[in-house]
C-alpha cells in the first residue's frame, strides 16, 4: 500500500529509502510481506517486457519462433521459467492477502494469512516444477 504521508523527502533520504527496501533486520512481518510484494512485482514487470519482446518473434513467422522454442525447452531455461511461476504465485497470493487486509478483512490474522499464502505458493510451486520437468 502506498504511503502518502511524506512528499518532499530530500534526495539523500530518498536514496536511503530505496536501500532500506533491502534491509530485512528488525522488520515487522507485515512490512516484509509488503516489500516482498513490491520486489516480486518489479521483477514481474521486467519479465512482462522481456516476454513482449520475445513474442515479437511470432510476428516474423514460423522459422524464428521454432528457433526460440528450442531455447525454451532447455532445462536451464525451464529452471528460470519455474522461478517466474514462483514469483507469480508469491505476488498473486500475497497480493490477495494485502487486498483483503486493506479492505479490513482478517486484519488481526494477517500473519497467518501471510504464512498460508507462502505455504500454498511453495506447494503449488513444487507441483508446477514437477509438471514442467515431466515428473507428474
Amino acid at each position: 500500500m502506498t504511503s502518502t504521508t511524506v512528499h518532499t523527502r530530500p534526495t539523500r533520504g530518498r536514496v536511503r529509502g530505496v536501500l532500506a527496501y533491502a534491509n530485512l533486520r528488525r522488520r515487522h512481518l507485515g512490512s516484509v510481506a509488503f516489500v516482498t510484494n513490491r520486489i516480486t512485482g518489479l521483477l514481474l514487470v521486467g519479465y512482462l517486457y522481456l516476454h513482449l519482446g520475445i513474442l515479437y518473434l511470432l510476428t516474423e513467422g514460423p522459422r524464428s519462433w521454432t528457433t526460440v522454442l528450442h531455447l525454451f525447452k532447455n532445462p536451464a531455461f525451464l529452471g528460470l521459467e519455474s522461478l517466474l511461476i514462483l514469483f507469480i504465485l508469491i505476488h498473486g497470493l500475497n497480493g490477495l492477502r494485502l487486498a483483503l487486509v486493506g479492505t479490513g478483512v482478517g486484519v488481526r490474522h494477517q500473519k497467518a494469512w501471510f504464512a498460508t499464502a507462502m505455504s500454498v505458493s511453495g506447494c503449488l510451486y513444487v507441483v508446477v516444477v514437477l509438471a514442467m520437468y515431466g515428473v507428474i
Binding site: 532500506a20 527496501y21 533486520r25 528488525r26 522488520r27 515487522h28 510481506a33 487486509v101
Partner: peptide
Amino acid sequence: MAADLNDRVRPRAVPPSGRGGSLAWILQAV
C-alpha cells in the same frame, strides 16, 4: 532506518486516502 521503513510500509486496515491514492489502491486490488 528499519524502524522508519516499518512506519512507512506497515499495512493499514484501510486503503490510503488523498490525491487519488484510495482510488488507485482500489483499482490495483480489483
